[in-house]
Design a protein around this nucleic acid. Sequence first.
DNA 1: TAGATTGTTAATCGATTAACAATC
DNA 2: TAGATTGTTAATCGATTAACAATC
Lengths: 206, 206
Amino acid sequence: MKTIKISEAVVRRLPIYLRFLNELSKKNISTVSSQDLGQKLDLNPAQIRKDLAYFGEFGKKGIGYDVDYLIEKIRHILKLDKVIPVALVGAGNLGRALCNYNAYLKDNMKIVAIFDAQASKIGESINNLKVKPMEDLAAVIRSLHVRIGIITVPAVEAQQVANQFVEAGVEAILNFAPVIIKVPGEVRVHHADFTTELQSLAYYLD
Amino acid sequence: MKTIKISEAVVRRLPIYLRFLNELSKKNISTVSSQDLGQKLDLNPAQIRKDLAYFGEFGKKGIGYDVDYLIEKIRHILKLDKVIPVALVGAGNLGRALCNYNAYLKDNMKIVAIFDAQASKIGESINNLKVKPMEDLAAVIRSLHVRIGIITVPAVEAQQVANQFVEAGVEAILNFAPVIIKVPGEVRVHHADFTTELQSLAYYLD
DNA sequence: TAGATTGTTAATCGATTAACAATC
DNA sequence: TAGATTGTTAATCGATTAACAATC
């Protein structure tokens, strides 16, 4: 099996395809062309075809893509065909907001544990989950087989939380704190930082 | 004046430089080299030098960059040298969380108005701001000279809110709803979607 | 068959990195 | 002066787009 390295840009587009395909499926639309997709998602049709072709021949010439079949395929590629347990540290407003997305992520991912360092937060209930103390982190992550960690603590605490996640065996981290965190090469980190996002927008003002 | 088009990738890195430079400044570190920066931010030093060189000669050969001077320059490039008024629609958990970043964005940007369509939310106080009804959006945006709009409403309402923002004269939009919104070419939109971010992370699990 | 659309190759475009003269 | 580091050019690398044969 020859393994072609898939670029990050491609991987980032797959969930966007998936989301739109789910909408189509809900509307009982059974077929879609790369042209349709491109128009709705502001992407080049050739790019969409190429992205998908990295993983297989999912379309039919002259017809397009079968919506439900493509959903199934992309879910498999993204490893979303079985539930991935996720843990979150930082039970502030942002943490709470993300927990509410649990419904949105229904089949795919599930936030199964919430932690906070502040004593006053411990035991509080968020979306039927009790906030746990940091001391329990490693044990809980191991027993629930958590694979992805989300960080929504203040910047100064983020690296420390990341270390604990890594130590506990988490495979990937989504960091919302406005700081670059460092982890060993085998752990994947994505940064989702609201402040830098907003500041880069300012550049485009006249 | 020859205008070189600055790529989005460059613009996205500037706020990251800025944030780290601010940290250095707080620690009274007065000079930094592209090598230092690259190491801390996981970026290639040549790339950092090139990014900055698009805008001027900010460094000193053999020495590096003066931290405070570079902060000033980047703030100017990003148009963050005067306060940019921002409005937010959607007073849910996420909206509330973002409002708390007001402190973080201190000199740069300020959320000056919050709106919600739900009657029960109107009048509620978030960070000293009273939630206003959607009917007031256009008038408030104009009177407060709001330039950037943030969308934190459910996906189905996002496009409609975007339309209202555009109509009211907002120049840029940061959309947190999990849907691609369409706006006229002169309005800049960035998508900050937690769900796609998390799903693309799943790809990198073993 | 005629029309549509894929998968894929080739061409283009753009971004990153290496290398080094200039110079503090 | 010797060492360090910038600004910038050239080389490399990678991603996007165009084009089209294959085929439903």
